[in-house]
Amino acid sequence: MHLLPFYFDRDPYLVLDFTAANPDLATLNLTNIDTFTNYVFGKIRAAGAVVGVGGYNEDRVVYSNSPHFTPTGDEPRSIHLGIDFWAAAGTPVFAPVDGVVHSFRDNAQYADYGPTIILEHNTEGFPRFSLYGHLSRASLTDLYDGKPFRAGEKLAEFGPYPENGDWPPHLHFQLMHDMLGLHGDYPGVCRPSERNEWLTRCPNPNKWLNIRNL
């Protein structure tokens, strides 16, 4: 399955950890975008890698100071439901299997997905829906619900800060069995108390990507 212009059986990549087990996060203020960007891409460069990866079912501490993920008095949302790929803005994204555009939207709130595309698939053995978040605004140009994409066809590009939802450049890739009636948006992070329910809805993309050590 070809999602990005990287070959994970050949190109060097770095698995990034955003849980409390990563001691780096105790001393870094990742609410500061420059600090966050320098940390992510500094780690990738230091490892001699071309892309950073990781995040599925990860209990992340990076959301703890964001009201988007942790409303006052509510249980924090911290369980990540997709895989993130950290690379330069403009990195192309390809449709992993045949599909059509289910919906799309610029989720422009702070710390949200920014430009987002959701595809619907009928490929046997593959989940029904796939989500691509933190894209460039140009990626939404000329889209329409039902627009077809063949496997391997360019779908979008990684967006730059701040149009990508105010994040360092990356792709959030998520699979879903059920859209729950939603359009252009879907939860990418859940509460720990609801973890099993959401992981059942959103299977591990690495079952199809086959990236080692994820």
Rank of each mutant, 00 (worst) to 15 (best):
F126Y: 14
R137E: 14
K207D: 07
N29A: 04
R150E: 13
N32D: 15
G181V: 02
P127D: 10
A26E: 14
F6C: 11
K147R: 15
Y144K: 12
D24K: 00
F69D: 09
Y186K: 11
G165R: 05
S136A: 15
N29Y: 02
T91I: 01
D9T: 12
V101I: 15
P203V: 03
L140K: 08
R45I: 01
Y132I: 04
F36A: 10
V15S: 09
T200D: 12
A87F: 05
G99Y: 07
G165S: 12
G73T: 01
R45P: 00
T116S: 10
P148G: 10
P127G: 07
S139T: 01
S66H: 10
V93A: 05
D84L: 01
S136W: 02
Y56A: 12
G159L: 03
S64M: 13
A46E: 15
T123Y: 11
N65Q: 15
L25F: 06
T70A: 13
H170C: 03
C202V: 04
Y56D: 05
T70R: 13
P169V: 00
Y113I: 00
L155R: 10
N206Y: 11
K207M: 05
V15T: 13
N204W: 05
T19Q: 07
P92C: 02
P92N: 05
Y186N: 09
V62S: 03
R10T: 01
S136D: 14
L199D: 09
V50R: 15
E153L: 06
